[in-house]
Nucleic acid binder design. Sequence first.
DNA 1: GCCAACGTTGGC
DNA 2: GCCAACGTTGGC
Length: 159
Amino acid sequence: MSRSRNYWLVKTEEDIYPITKLKKDKVTQWTDVRNFEARKHLLAMKRGDKLLIYHSNASPSGIAGLGVILREAYPDPGQFDRESEYFDEKATKDSPRWFAPDVKFLSEFKNKLTLEELRAHRELKNMVLFKRSRLSVQPVTAEEFEFVLSLASVSRQAH
DNA sequence: GCCAACGTTGGC
DNA sequence: GCCAACGTTGGC
């Protein structure tokens, strides 16, 4: 029996790792997530799951494009590196604490879908994005995902 | 840069 | 196991 695909929203700070950088890299390790609930979601991601890529700390903040899970989560190397700002002394190779999947670039929206615009749609009113504003990896329903895509194509047609 | 929201830590 | 203090996120 095949499992249905899941959808997620992941945040990245626009001035640290914008989607234009992912576009250039094609694939990146989605590292540095250090929050237990976000970790749970990273570990639940399956190859082929699609991601809304959200730029935080931006003006304005919003969804900038799409990615897809290429490799499921494996231990995040930064936790073992004393030099890294993401080093975790409680983590060992035998029992890692933090994980990262590989994310592949899919597309960049012509126009970022801003928080303000997203908030304006009833169809999106239950998005975790609004209820759990600090969670950096969060589930998205299939309906929400499809609706966001429909908004993105509208903004593409506008230009 | 401010500050509200909220996740995490640590004393008890 | 509670909860106050602290630190961080992220919108504005």
